[in-house]
């Protein structure tokens, strides 16, 4: 399934947040969105998933979701958004319960996604017993359980320490390599963007406009920590963003 944005403009009251964003997210690719703080990245993601409506423009999903897809547009949140009163298994089953699946099928899906995210041994643990990295893996397992056509990820790794982040990036790459999924990945972190993105959308400061779209052809499985070409791309992205980021920072001080 593809997502296409046509001339998206959005404002909260008098504050223009996004201006004329047109973008296509091709099937089976990861598109990263980077931009200075407050430029409307999270807003853009909420618009794409139908949690908010844009002031202008349209968001289209093109093509049907694959069969067996329970929730075509699925989020992974920065703060995990796990129900603290449900176990790991319960958190995953939450998103399956409204679909009237046979019990055996539900159990099969849960065991499958927990195995894929290496959480089988923690199925009965409560979120308070898990580390940050594990919590985000539970959130990833929950997203995988509905077999999404498009994953919408809002800084999924930024609440984690850098080692855990590396490990989870490897996990994401392994998951994608096994079955490529479509994803929009919002991040602050340019290193994440060059590791995971097939293309990287650079937004300007608020109101967010597309400054440039950088394409990376290297296959995900061949991108490694500290790769020289990736470093070079990362520097290039930073050179695009630096002035915007500085200006955005000064702007926040004016408020």
């Amino acid at each position: 399934m593809e997502i296409r944005l046509n001339g998206i403009t959005h404002a909260y009251g008098d504050t223009a947040v996004l201006r004329d964003i047109s973008l296509a997210v091709p099937s089976g690719k990861i598109v990263c969105i980077v931009g200075p703080s407050g430029c409307g990245k999270s807003t853009l993601l909420r618009l794409m998933g139908g949690l908010e409506q844009p002031s202008e423009g349209e968001i289209l999903q093109m093509g049907d979701a694959p069969s067996g897809c329970l929730n075509p547009l699925t989020y992974i949140f920065q703060d995990f958004a796990l129900l603290p009163w449900r176990s790991v298994r319960g958190n995953v089953s939450l998103v399956l319960e409204d679909h009237n699946l046979p019990k055996a099928e539900v159990n099969r899906i849960i065991s499958d996604v927990l195995a894929r995210t290496k959480l089988t041994d923690f199925a009965n643990a409560l979120p308070k017993q898990l580390s940050g990295g594990m919590k985000q893996r539970v959130a990833i397992a929950r997203a995988l359980a509905v077999n999404p056509a498009v994953m919408l990820m809002d800084e999924p790794l930024s609440a984690l320490d850098s080692q855990t982040r590396e490990l989870l990036m490897d996990d994401l790459i392994a998951l994608w390599t096994r079955t490529p999924f479509t994803a929009i990945y919002v991040t602050h972190n340019l290193a994440e963007a060059v590791r995971l993105g097939h293309s990287i959308v650079v937004l300007s400061r608020r109101p967010g406009e597309i400054r440039e779209i950088v394409h990376l052809d290297q296959p995900l499985s061949e991108r490694h920590f500290g790769d020289a070409t990736l470093e070079e791309r990362q520097h290039y992205l930073w050179s695009l963003m630096r002035d915007e980021a500085r200006a955005a920072d000064a702007e926040l001080l004016d408020v």
């Binding site: 998103v95 409204d98 929950r142």
Partner: peptide, 12 residues
């Protein structure tokens, strides 16, 4: 955030 999560997964 939890309510939003529920909505984003299409819960009734």
């Amino acid at each position: 955030g939890l309510i939003r999560m529920g909505q984003s997964f299409g819960l009734s």
